[in-house]
Simulated scan of single mutants.
Amino acid sequence: MTSQAETVTVRVPGKINLGLSVGPLREDGYHELSTIYHAVSLYDTVTVQPADDWSVHVTGPWGDRVPADASNLALVAARTLARRRARRAKVDPVRIDIDKNIPVAGGMAGGSADAAAALVGCRELWALDHIENDMLEGIAAGLGSDVPFLLHGGTAIGTGRGEQVTSVLARGELHWVLWAGEDLSLSTPEVYAECDRLREEAGTVPGTPEPSGELMAALRRMDTDAVADALHNDLQDAAISLQPVLSEALAAGLDLGARGALVSGSGPTVAFLVGSQTEAIDLSVGLAANGPHGDIVRATGPVPGAQVVHHRNSPEPYRALPTPHRPGPPGPVTG
């Protein structure tokens, strides 16, 4: 067993859903889903270190929107892993510091990302060599539907309620411009409820959700225009119904030259697909000048999931969870 580190810092990306098909409501209260996850280079940084008591501290552009109490999902993740470890030996509490750059309640799984980072960081901090990847993924699935994907990152199909993850081969990279409205947030349960209401109103009965063959084929070729044509999100109409400014943002980005656009997940972050870094810069500038007010970030994908980037007092390199995808460089923030 390796010796315990004093601090471990983990970088974890946000995600967008390139395709999201929502099926019927299940007996457990979740909807059956088929989604294609895509991790992008917009990162939270999570640092864990031993402490006398459990605590979480949040800074960064979105830090004031994150709970710093026992409900924080990163803290819940750490304590859950500690209980699993307690079957063998007691571990010390940790202080968790989160630098929050992924929008909160924005459809990019920022809370789930922090939970994934806490699991990876605490496993390293506590030298939990016996906690294998499959076991960590099982713990992650119990914390939230998006947490297992963010352990790995890349591009992947999510089924069930999203927690059953299978990697997708997607060579190359895609360029994105992400728009997040200021003081704009959506509750995931609220968006799903609105989706159900709109379907009932329209007399639509959802079938079994399946991944889009067109989108899968486009990703295998990493054909930007084909991916753009295949983007879809069954929750988009519901998100727009609750926050009509999203329609304005989508229209503005497409008018300014985006190849494709969609609301990410339950929203309200809007993801615009472009063909290059130059196009991303041009669209960022255009949105800042002519679109609805919001934070604008350039990003690339796919990128790996939660990875240790700093490990004090350990000469051993971190063994990341496997991913078949080549990372893209992080994009600069604009706007």
Rank of each mutant, 00 (worst) to 15 (best):
R161C: 01
G265N: 08
E124S: 06
G23K: 11
E200F: 07
S71P: 07
A251V: 04
E32V: 06
M135S: 14
I281F: 13
S21T: 07
P209C: 14
L75Y: 06
L273T: 03
A39H: 03
L119I: 02
G111E: 02
C195Y: 04
G111R: 03
P324D: 15
L20R: 02
V303R: 07
A218W: 01
L256D: 00
G107M: 09
P209R: 13
G158Y: 00
S266A: 15
N133W: 08
S276H: 10
A289M: 10
I36H: 00
L219M: 10
S21V: 08
L198E: 13
G213S: 15
D183H: 12
K15Y: 08
P211A: 15
E248W: 06
A252D: 01
A89V: 05
A228R: 02
V263N: 04
P50M: 09
R199K: 10
V66H: 01
G107S: 09
Y30T: 04
S266V: 07
H293F: 08
H311Y: 10
K100Y: 05
G162S: 07
D183G: 15
A238S: 03
E279D: 14
A156N: 04
D196F: 15
R312Y: 09
P67D: 06
N17V: 06
E132I: 06
H152F: 05
S212T: 01
E163R: 13
N133E: 08
A140Q: 02
V191K: 04
V245F: 01
I16W: 01
S314C: 12
R123N: 05
R197E: 12
G23Q: 06
L254G: 03
A228N: 03
A5W: 03
A127E: 12
V177P: 00
